[in-house]
Design a protein around this nucleic acid. Structure first.
Length: 178
DNA sequence: ACGATGATGAAC
DNA sequence: TTCATCATCGTA
């Protein structure tokens, strides 16, 4: 189900929609990283949606701060932060300007887990607030991969048990998930 | 089951 | 200025 003709770089218009829709539709898209002359493209296989100021699992829940400010801005920019003092988390900002939302990219290609993904792609805070575009060195492409709905699993998000009712919402999307 | 490891945000 | 917390992962 791969149409080799199409290869479209996703832009602000794609990301400026309901963050849950974007999270689901990112499955099967390709995360592309260029460092120097080397380019690596990995198919996205796992995402999570963080949706609005009321979402207790979201960094935006306690209002705008220096760290999460990018979440409140325009869609299509990266939000990268360090968690546990160890791992860089890669997010892409979604939905309307002023409404804080983002999608966490948890897995792509053969790499399972957001920390491992960022390590292999050399993603760090330098990419924070950068636009998802070729000149940033990190972008996302639609390469014509079609993911049937039955191959997508929806589950609660990982590592957000503190978020009460919001921890139970099916905001995690996994391609061929368990 | 637990420690690594450091930025962040809230409290003081 | 201090302090608890954390959208994880590798080792035990």
């Amino acid at each position: 189900m791969l149409n080799m003709q199409s290869r479209r770089v996703l832009n602000e218009k794609f990301f400026c929609r309901d963050t849950r829709v974007v999270a689901r539709e990112l499955l099967g898209k390709f995360l592309v990283r260029r460092v120097g002359k080397k380019e690596k493209a990995l198919m996205i296989t796992e995402t999570e949606a963080y949706d609005g100021p009321d979402d207790k699992a979201s960094h935006a829940h306690r209002g705008k701060t220096a760290r999460n400010a990018v979440m409140f801005g325009k869609a299509g920019r990266f939000y990268v932060y360090l968690v546990y003092g160890v791992h860089q988390m890669l997010n892409i900002v979604t939905d309307k300007n002023g409404y804080p939302a983002a999608v966490l990219i948890r897995s792509a290609g053969e790499y399972d887990g957001p920390g491992k993904l960022s390590k292999i792609l050399r993603i760090n805070r330098q990419l924070n607030e950068k636009k998802a575009m070729r000149t940033s060195g990190l972008w996302i492409e639609d390469r014509g991969m079609i993911i049937p709905k039955k191959e997508i699993k929806k589950t609660p998000r990982i590592g957000v048990a503190y978020a009460g009712e919001w921890a139970k919402k099916p905001y995690r999307f996994v391609y061929r998930g368990v």
